[in-house]
Amino acid sequence: MPVLVVIPARLGATRLPRKPLADIGGRPMVVRTAEKARAADVGRVVVATDSSEIRAAVEAAGFEAVMTREDHPSGSDRVFEALNLVDPDGAFDTLLNLQGDFPTISPETVKRALAPLSGKGCDIATLGAEIHDEAEKTNPNVVKVVGSPIGERRLRALYFTRATAPWGEGPLFHHVGVYAFHRAALGRFVSLPPSVLETREKLEQLRALEAGMRIDVGIVDEVPVGVDGPAELELARRAFA
């Protein structure tokens, strides 16, 4: 089925103001992310934004952008609005939500995010990578995915947490926040109210698990730099230097 890659990008970030437009190697961060999505060559790439300034920068770089509402509570809600704006007739059944603050993600990792969606019964696909840095195992800013193996380098997600989990010997996995959805699954997800564990952990994907939706996880070797603040922005700039 044809794939629509949607990159949500809002201007009002708190930790790093005007984050999508931050310069990385002479181009805005959101454009760098769109370049990686285009290089993955998995489908049509659209940036969904609430800012005419972001839209202008994206279009000046030769990418497609669509204006969405300012009041979306999450990137998934923005992706769903963008989907219905650019594809009201339902030609796209598969959506890839690629956050606009992943300028260093490799095209191959973008592709890998789609693979688990082919599994029978899978509603949502995402990625994980084994944690090798001991400090990250106890860092609440590093989200861990807990899952049961269902194949080579594939898990069925049971939980996501900021705590160190699971207990005991064995690998821990860093969740990489790229999501692929079947269209109907995304529609169901955004229609659900915030869940108890989602609110407690501040992790949106727990809403899906609490509602009985299935999330499968592909294991990759790369953890792309997610730019949340100045320190990560500097790392991304070094990567492009």
Rank of each mutant, 00 (worst) to 15 (best):
R183I: 15
L192F: 15
G151S: 12
L114T: 02
G177R: 05
K137T: 02
E130G: 06
P171T: 12
G187S: 10
G62Y: 03
D50L: 01
V220P: 00
T14V: 15
E169Y: 00
E59Y: 09
L95N: 11
P17I: 11
E130F: 04
I219Y: 05
A157M: 01
G168T: 15
D133M: 14
D89C: 07
T199C: 09
A180H: 06
M67L: 10
C122F: 01
N84L: 02
R69C: 08
V6T: 06
T94V: 15
D87R: 06
V196S: 10
A211T: 09
G229R: 11
A39P: 09
A60S: 05
M67V: 01
F173Q: 12
L197H: 05
V79I: 11
R44N: 03
Q99H: 12
M29T: 00
H72K: 02
F160P: 04
A157F: 02
R162K: 10
I124T: 05
V217A: 02
A91L: 05
I105K: 09
G121W: 01
G147C: 03
N84S: 04
V47I: 05
A184Q: 12
I219G: 06
P17W: 14
V110S: 08
V142S: 02
Q205P: 11
G12D: 13
V6L: 08
V66H: 00
V46G: 01
G62F: 04
V176S: 03
P166T: 09
